[in-house]
Amino acid sequence: MLNYLINGISLGSVYAIIALGYTMVYGIAKMLNFAHGDVIMIGGYVAYCATSYLGWPVLFCVLASVVVCIVLGIVIERLAYKPLRNASSLAVLITAIGVSYFLQNIALIIWTSNPKSFPNMVTLPPLVIGGLQISSVALVTIAACIVIMIALTLFTGKTKMGKAMRAVSEDKDAARLMGINVDATISLTFAIGSGLAAIAGVLLCSAYPTLMPTTGAMPGIKAFTAAVFGGIGSIPGAMLGGILLGIIEIFGKAYISTQLSDAIVFSVLILILLVKPTGLMGKKVNEKV
């Protein structure tokens, strides 16, 4: 029971880290970056190559993965999304789906469809408390999630750049009038989101070590669900949504049905949205006239 809870929180922490990327990009660019899940997959492959072919130490592999994903995120935004800044949201959505398939196909060409078995990057001994054994991957994942949450909260709440990011997500023209470089701020958001996706990729593959070009798709959709569940655009919401989603999924698998666990996850989402359409922590401030 306690074991399931910890597994749930750990899986949920991965969803939360991915959901943060969705939510930040949505907040600022008002678009659903459906390619976000595939950036996770690329992050996984980069870490895989760095360790299997180059034999780099773990920390460098993670770093390489983060750097590649950050560059990838910025390039995707510049080439695919920026030209559509004033286009209809449907056009942007279709483009994002296109980018998602593009990344999957690139991975297919480079790494083929044969699953790679991802080496566990967290090789610490498990923590044993009484009869309870917690794997080091789960611990590191949960810790990473907490650190990221605190760092992002401080960044958006206390730093000049973070505040500018919130200003841009609310009103781009007003932000321009303040002297904020809106394009640079959007790039920065994609960079942060993609860097987080890389970390999520490494953690995810360490826990579920089969790596394929489609590896990022399902966690991506679930993390997107988590972001909506928590209230899209809200950072604590993404966190809470991700962790709850992980817990629901693991308990659903354990007590109801392994096959139905995904259906359960999505049903809960629909229920929450029926009761509270803005998500758990979604906020709405009305303009006064």
Partner: peptide
């Protein structure tokens, strides 16, 4: 975004303050 530095500010129609930022954060912006 480079025009404000030349010494010109616009207080736009409809105020366009940042509704989700605090008063002080708006001023900082």
């Amino acid at each position: 975004h480079k025009i404000v530095n030349r010494g010109m500010a616009l207080c736009p129609e409809g105020r366009r303050i940042f509704l989700q930022l605090s008063v002080q954060e708006n001023l900082e912006m």
